[in-house]
Design a protein around this nucleic acid. Structure first.
Length: 583
DNA sequence: GCCGTTTTCGGCCCGACTGTTTTCAGTCG
């Protein structure tokens, strides 16, 4: 069954967007009401498709008007008001409204005074200098809009970039800035810090007593292509790959307030400011201030500001206004996973796998350096074309592993394998050989085109196989390149709980699979998780931190992550699952 | 469009920047 709630949210979101245009106000309160309602509905447990108007009105942020629209949608599949707005703002006009610098007010004027109804119309008007006679518009505006059109057509501005592409660029820039003597602290903020799968632009926050030279340094970097706007404390640059980077320089003592502000999310910040107002304060990027006396309540660190507002500190990946503020106010925030708590990696390849690049000894050395208590080597099963490994080669590896184990008395080496889940849920090798491994990951690497029912069936079959400890990268998604397989999540997560099969949190930024929404749901069902790097090179063992942050985003606490457990407990759990279902 | 012991109207988060103005409106994050 397709998720009709998601369809509803999409339509309400569109309604919000078009209402901004219709109200001619970027801060349209009606539009915000729609967005608030979406937030509330998302956080509502139970089936909203079946709720009556009276029940809907009980929800915070849902009044009679929105409740009626919700019922209208579930009854007829349409929202009449939205259809009227769509007529008034056809796709061409909406595209026009996407241009940066062209807000609802200017859009209305251009339509009324110049008859501009599309990007093409606007270009024609610009070429004819038709904007100049209009009050409040001049040559600069003309030039700005012309450039915005160019960018739009390059597909630049509204395109979001997968986090795996953005993170290395951002980290490189952070390192560059941190190397300057006048810079005290640097932090990337925004959706990157919150670990969203795709990123619009990068927000870099710099603390410096003297901003001189910082912007110039950035502009001098070879990867920086264009710098359309710049001032002393705020600038925008574009990298050679078209990624927009906004840089803000602030005084060190306001770093916390600024980091909070620029990390967002917007909805989270609005809630924080409301809490400030309730206390007679004001929260902005300079600090938490007394509204009357301007006395500083807190500003140096995010933690101080949260504390002053009566909240426990909220980790960046949780800042989405999906219940974290209420939880932080009552001390009910889950004790989120700290990367340092992870004491083993349970999905790692060596150069024995066709696509692996580092030799076994190196992998083990690096795991030792990271202080791990256990490590599972998991080459690809033989069914995976080109990259898979034969039974004989795996048996030989097992011998080697047993020899190497002696050199690492503090780290238990598990001989594992990454099995391929076949079209109908079948797995590599035979049951006896699979049972001879210490640890089995099972994952989807093929048949992405099957429908939801078939996909669900094959995952359930894999979970019921007695050899399987964990399902690796649950949907097989590659962010920005390939959508994951569709699954009946309720059935899959229920089965995970019943069979004791863990769900992997795959730390590769290109995957971040399972997605945070899935983690959040799984957590409520008491599922056990394992955070893995799926490393194919020793350096990739270091990406465990992203998996930990992904857990934070999914509200997964350490207790439910099996590889935070001490070796004794972990090994007993892994072995127990196999023996109980092997018999 | 929602909300309510300072309630059924008048609020709703906050400030910087830009371009254009001569005190501010619009846009953005």
């Amino acid at each position: 069954m397709p998720d009709r709630s998601e369809d509803l949210f999409a339509l309400l979101g569109e309604l919000a967007k078009l209402t901004i245009l219709d109200d001619g106000d970027p801060q349209s309160f009606r539009a915000r009401a729609y967005e608030n309602a979406i937030q509330e509905l998302r956080g509502t447990p139970g089936d909203i498709t079946r709720m009556s108007e009276a029940e809907l009105v009980q929800l915070d942020g849902v009044g009679r008007a929105i409740a009626k629209k919700i019922r209208e949608f579930f009854a007829t599949g349409r929202i009449a008001k939205l259809e009227r707005l769509r007529e008034r703002y056809p796709p061409e006009v909406q595209r026009l409204a996407q241009l940066p610098g062209l807000g609802p007010k200017l859009l209305t004027r251009l339509r009324q005074e110049l008859g501009v109804e599309s990007v093409d119309d606007l270009r024609t008007a610009l070429d004819a200098h038709a904007l100049r006679p209009l009050r409040g518009l001049g040559a600069k505006t003309e030039e700005r809009l012309a450039r915005a059109i160019e960018r739009l057509e390059l597909g630049g501005k509204d395109r979001r970039t997968p986090i795996a592409e953005v993170m290395p660029v951002a980290r490189r820039l952070v390192a560059e800035l941190a190397s300057l003597p006048q810079v005290e602290r640097v932090q990337y903020c925004g959706s990157l810090r919150r670990l969203l799968p795709t990123i619009g632009d990068v927000d870099l926050l710099v603390a410096a007593t003297d901003p001189t030279g910082i912007v110039e340094h950035l502009r001098s970097l070879p990867t920086v292509r264009d710098a359309p706007r710049f001032g002393d404390t705020r600038t925008t640059i574009f990298t050679d790959r078209g990624l927009q980077v906004d840089v803000r320089i602030v005084a060190p003592e306001q770093f916390g307030a600024a980091a909070l502000y620029f990390t967002g999310s917007k909805a989270h910040n609005i809630r924080l400011r409301q809490l400030a107002i309730e206390r007679g304060w004001r929260l902005n990027e300079y600090g938490l201030l007394d509204a009357e006396t301007e006395r500083v309540i807190a500003r140096e660190s995010e933690e101080e500001i949260y504390a002053a507002l009566g909240l426990t500190a909220i980790p960046p990946p949780m800042r989405e206004d999906t219940g974290e503020i209420e939880a932080a106010a009552t001390g009910a925030l889950p004790r989120v996973l700290d990367p340092a708590q992870l004491c083993g990696d349970l999905h790692v390849h060596t150069d024995l796998s066709g696509d692996g690049r580092s030799p076994l000894e190196q992998v083990i050395e690096r795991a030792q350096t990271r202080g791990y208590r256990y490590l599972a080597i998991t080459e690809h099963g033989e069914d995976l074309a080109i990259n898979g490994v034969t039974r004989e080669a795996l048996l030989a590896q097992r011998e080697t592993l047993r020899r190497l184990e002696v050199r690492h008395p503090d780290m238990r080496l598990l001989h594992g394998v990454e099995l391929n889940i076949g079209r109908d849920g079948g797995l590599d090798y035979d049951a006896d050989f699979r049972a001879s491994f210490d640890w089995c990951v099972a994952a989807v690497h093929s048949h992405f085109e099957l429908d939801r029912e078939a996909q669900t069936r094959r995952i359930l079959a894999a979970m019921r196989d007695p050899s399987v400890n964990v399902i690796g990268h649950l949907t097989g998604r590659m962010i920005g390149r390939r959508p994951g397989i569709e699954l009946d999540l309720d059935a899959v997560l229920r089965c995970a709980g019943e069979t004791g099969t863990a769900i992997e949190v795959n730390s590769a930024l290109a995957r971040l699979d399972a997605a945070w929404e899935v983690l959040r749901k799984a957590r409520e069902l008491g599922v056990t998780f394992v955070v893995n790097t799926d490393a194919h090179h020793v350096d990739e063992l270091d990406r465990m931190q992203w998996g930990a942050l992904q857990c934070q985003r999914g509200w997964v606490d350490a207790e439910h992550v099996a590889n935070t457990w001490p070796a004794g407990r972990f090994l007993a759990w892994a072995a127990n699952r196999r023996s109980t279902r092997g018999g």
